[in-house]
Structures are given as C-alpha cells and as structure tokens.
C-alpha cells in the first residue's frame, strides 16, 4: 500500500515535471510550428465529425428529458434556457473533452509510445532534438487551442438538436422565442466557464497522452498498455478538474 502510494506520488511528480518543461518550451526556441498545425489538423479537424454528432444527440436527449420534467411544472417554455445552460456550462465541455480524450489521448500515447519502443525518442535526443520541445509542446498547444473550438461546435449543434425536438417536434415554444431565450439565459460567467474548461481539459489530454507515451516500456505490448492508461487517466482527470472548476465558478 505504501509502495503504491509512493509510485503514485513519484509518477505525479514526473508528470508535473513534464508539464513544467513543456510550458517552459512555449517561450523557448526552436518552435516547431509545422508540428503545431499538423496536430491541430489531426486533433481539431479529425475530431469534428464525432464531436458534432455527439453534440447533436446530447442536445436532443436533454430536450426530450427536460420536456417531460418541465411539463409537470407547466414550465415547458423554459426548455431552451435549461438546455443552453446545461450544454454550455457543463455537458458541452465535458462530453467533448471525453470524446477527444478517447480519440487523441490514446492516439498521442500510442504514437509516442511506438516512438519510444523503437528508440526514435532516444535517436532524437542523440541527434540534438529535445523530444519535449518537438513532440509534447506542439501537441499541448494544438489540443489546448482546438478543444475550445470543438466545444463551441458541440454546443451549437447541441442547441440545434434541442431546437429540433422542442420546436418542430413537440411544439413547446415558437422558434423565435427559443433562440432569444437561449441567448438571454447566458451570462458572461457561463461563457467563460464554457471556454476556460475545455482549454484546461485540452492541456490535460495532451499532457497525459504524452506522459504515458513517453514512459512506455516493454515493446508493442507496452504501447497498448500505455494507450489504455492514458485514456483512463485523462478521463478521470477531466471529471476531477470539472468538479474543482465548478466549485470555483459557482463561488464566483
């Protein structure tokens, strides 16, 4: 038990060390802009379809569930503000982050993991390239920038999905009222939450993926292991940090 805690603390320390180094590299040369754009394409554009699809379905599901609940209080016209707040504050950021964690924390971990076990990471260091600068920092930048964008897309499509349920299907409210209530229900705090959360989740996803990838040992089997661990760890961290941030923002 004590050993387990020790390794846990030690690996968290390693993780913070990696995070520290990759942040420091943000302001140090050389900058690998090509890699940043490549990763933005892989992470951002690549995740767009699944994020859009999931956003749309979640919007529809929330609208359906809320419609029933609100009906019992005779408040079904509130559907638009409820859907908006749930999506923008919480569900949009967390769902998108979980999807991107499943898709990219694993992708990053397996890519860096295979590079580790085929000694490409060692080769980089031997040839004068800092792997953190070349591999981790671009992935960190790209994920932290793309996740807020993806979240906005998920939110928007979610709202549209909810609209399809609430207006044409169930006739709870008319179209103009739906959109104006949705817009009015948002305050600055909600928007800030909705964008800062994915920004932080993005960093977590990239760093966790890189961390597990870079410490892969034990051949191809090790790569599979690292991939699974990265997804599990990133997901847990996302929930944990979401909770922490809710505490902070609710206090605001």
């Amino acid at each position: 038990m004590l050993d387990f805690l020790k390794t846990l603390v030690a690996s968290f320390q390693d993780f913070l060390f990696l995070a520290g180094r990759s942040f420091k590299n943000l302001v140090r040369r050389p900058h690998y802009y090509d890699d940043v754009f490549l990763q933005m394409d892989i992470i951002g554009v690549g995740s767009l379809p699944i994020v859009a699809l999931t956003g749309g379905f979640s919007g529809m599901i929330i609208a359906l569930q809320m419609a029933r609940a609100l009906n019992t209080y005779g408040a079904s016209s509130q559907v638009s503000s409820i859907v908006t707040l749930t999506l923008v504050r919480e569900l949009g950021p967390v769902l998108t982050a979980l999807l991107v964690a499943g898709r990219n924390a694993s992708g990053i971990a397996s890519e860096l993991g295979s590079m580790k076990v085929t000694e490409q990471i060692d080769a980089m260091r031997a040839l004068g390239t800092d792997p953190v600068q070349k591999l981790v920092t671009p992935r960190l930048t790209a994920t932290a920038l793309m996740l807020p964008c993806l979240t906005v897309v998920a939110d928007a499509i979610g709202l549209f999905g909810a609209y399809l349920i609430a207006v044409p299907l169930l006739h709870l409210i008319d179209s103009g009222a739906y959109w104006s209530m949705s817009w009015r229900s948002l305050v600055m705090n909600d928007l800030a939450q909705g964008l800062i959360k994915p920004f932080i989740f993005g960093m977590i996803i990239a760093l966790v993926g890189c961390y597990y990838g870079l410490r892969t040992t034990g051949g191809t089997q090790g790569v599979g292991h690292a991939t699974t661990q990265a997804v599990v760890a990133a997901s847990i961290w996302i929930f944990f940090v979401a909770l922490l941030m809710d505490k902070i923002f609710v206090g605001l």
Partner: peptide, 14 residues
C-alpha cells in the same frame, strides 16, 4: 553527442 554516431538496436529511424 554530435561527436558520436549511434545505430540503435530497435533502429530508431523516424
């Protein structure tokens, strides 16, 4: 390190 060339066991080619 630039004074030493290395052939890695697992190849290490990018």
């Amino acid at each position: 390190r630039s004074g030493a060339g290395v052939l890695f066991q697992e190849g290490g080619l990018f």
